[in-house]
Simulated assay, not measured.
Amino acid sequence: MKLFFTIVLACTCIAGGSCLQCFTCSAVSDPCTLDITTCLSTITNCQTVSSQTITFLDESDFETISRIDQRCEVPSEDFSLRTGRVFISQNIHLCSSDRCNDQTEAEPANNTRNGLQCFGCFNSSTESCLANQQRVDCVGRQNRCVDGKGRQRLLPIGSNMVLKGCATTNLCELGVDLRAFSLLLSEVSCCEGALCNGDRGSTTTADPGRQRQDMIVIIIVLIVIAAFSIISLLVLVWRWGKRAVDPPAQRWAVGQLRYHDSAGSDMEPELA
């Protein structure tokens, strides 16, 4: 059957001109071995798909899985999701010449912060998600804050999943198939603006790194206030001490001088 398909494809390419040739390969966390394939006459691009999944069991225990797929172009698109405990991304690169997709390792994901922050969590229920949510810095093209529900096989929390985090716009429309990433979203809603996906009155867990930075700033401010207070107190003590140690004789002499000035003005002879 495969031989028959190859013969038909070759005849089609001969009849209609030349068909594009692309490399094919697939590998997880390792370089892939390239093979050559001839694409259908309707395909004009070779495609490289680089994807990455990072899962955090805690702050120090995490796993990174990178995958590369080389092929003739099929419908696909870039996307990215970050919840604090889970990060997934997919990047598509196209080229249009024969065997142009010769990359053997996945491209690294875009982890450049873009200034947007959203609340993030990834738990088995709404209650546990709200109780453990934290602020998440969005990266790359993530331009929406997201709330979602569905099923998962990424973390040992059971199959049901509730999430909050940062996402690219296309994830907000349930238009991206995430089953290859062990995720299946059944509900999703997105909003624009910093921290717009937070529930009022809910308990939030601050990001540890940001919490340490805030604590350092508070300590510095307290030190500056304390130093200013100590300096002001020392200046007051110095002024009070200077007045207290003036010699009595000096004060008496000043008084006598004022007395003589007063007496001398009374005894001054009148002019004729």
Rank of each mutant, 00 (worst) to 15 (best):
L183K: 05
A180G: 15
T126N: 09
I220H: 00
I219A: 11
N132Q: 11
G175I: 03
I218W: 08
N101T: 09
R153W: 13
V224F: 10
F119Y: 15
Q142T: 04
C191G: 02
E107G: 04
P208V: 05
C129H: 05
Q134T: 15
C118L: 08
I219H: 09
F181Y: 15
R153I: 02
L116G: 06
K164Q: 11
S189D: 11
G150P: 05
G175T: 05
N170G: 07
P108M: 01
R144Q: 13
R153D: 15
S182Y: 11
D147I: 03
K149P: 00
C191V: 04
T168E: 01
N110L: 12
Q142D: 12
D137E: 13
C145H: 08
R99G: 05
R151G: 07
G148Q: 03
D177A: 09
R179S: 15
G209Y: 09
S202L: 05
V221W: 04
N110C: 07
C121Q: 02
R99N: 15
L155F: 11
E105N: 02
F181P: 00
A206C: 04
N110H: 10
N114T: 06
S128T: 14
D207M: 01
G140T: 06
N123D: 14
N132M: 06
A109N: 05
D147F: 04
Q103E: 11
I220N: 03
S124T: 13
G120K: 08
N160A: 14
S182H: 13
R144A: 03
I220F: 02
I223E: 06
Q211K: 14
A106H: 01
G201N: 05
C100S: 02
R200K: 13
L195K: 07
C196K: 09
G120P: 06
Q134L: 09
N111V: 11
E173N: 14
N160S: 15
E107T: 09
A180I: 03
G198T: 02
G209L: 12
G158H: 01
R99W: 05
S125Q: 08
A106T: 00
S186Q: 08
D137Q: 12
T126G: 03
N123F: 10
G165Q: 00
E105V: 14
F122M: 05
F119M: 12
N132E: 13
G201P: 07
V139R: 09
D214S: 06
Q142Y: 09
V136L: 01
C145L: 10
R141E: 13
A106S: 05
P208W: 04
R200W: 07
L163A: 06
I216R: 15
D199L: 10
C172Y: 07
I219Q: 12
C100F: 01
N123H: 13
G115K: 12
G115P: 07
C100Q: 00
D102E: 13
Q133M: 10
C129A: 05
V146F: 10
D147K: 08
D177Q: 12
M215E: 15
C121E: 00
C121Y: 03
L171A: 04
Q117G: 11
G140M: 09
G175S: 14
D207T: 04
A180M: 07
D207Y: 05
G165M: 01
R210F: 06
G150F: 04
G198D: 01
G115D: 14
K149E: 14
C196H: 09
L184V: 07
M161K: 07
V136Y: 01
L184S: 13
D102G: 15
T104C: 00
L163Q: 00
E173A: 14
T205P: 02
G201C: 02
A131V: 02
F119D: 00
D199I: 10
R200V: 14
